[in-house]
Write a protein that binds this DNA or RNA. Structure first.
Lengths: 76, 76
DNA sequence: GGGTGATGTAAAGTATTTTTTACTTTTATA
DNA sequence: TATAAAAGTAAAAAATACTTTACATCACCC
């Protein structure tokens, strides 16, 4: 239980609101996921799979590394 | 088998051999995964998590999108 | 031939992500 | 105030990633 937090964060919400007019449901539909998944990821509950991360970045029109940040200082 | 293949491929093996002298076990150790995981991912059996993908790219000294390719034509 | 390191396969079990379903809260607006 | 769309919480089940363990093959070198 020692808090194995994911060390991945994202700016989906900010980019979604700034660059698009997608709702969470609209984004979910476009990336082929459910609304719950988008909500959980935006809330940093967990990191998406690599495939979903690529889809989200693609739909938002940003590179993966703009949307998702890896905090390499929290290594292990 | 409708083949819900992952639409993610990678060049880990090529980059690992070209840019480093890491063995699969050596790479595994550096990214904090097991040798089996590296073998399976190099063999395109499945895609890594986003976090592991970031670690692998980081250790290989390449951007995520150089190491991993998303085939957006296989959408859904 | 025997030993070692690197790579590979397989299967069972654990961990994490995603879906499905259902209910709550907020915000805008008529 | 009522209504609807958007965002949020929760929890069980399904899907996928990862580990652990064990054994097999291949190349190299003593």
């Amino acid at each position: 239980m020692g808090g194995k937090k994911t060390s991945i964060t994202n700016h989906i919400k900010r980019i979604r609101l700034a660059r698009t007019e997608f709702t969470q449901a609209g984004l979910a539909e476009r990336v082929g996921a459910t609304r719950q998944t988008i909500i959980a990821i935006e809330a940093q509950k967990y990191a998406p799979s690599l495939e979903l991360a690529f889809r989200i970045a693609h739909v938002l029109g940003e590179p993966v590394e703009e949307v998702f940040q890896f905090d390499s200082s929290l290594w292990d």
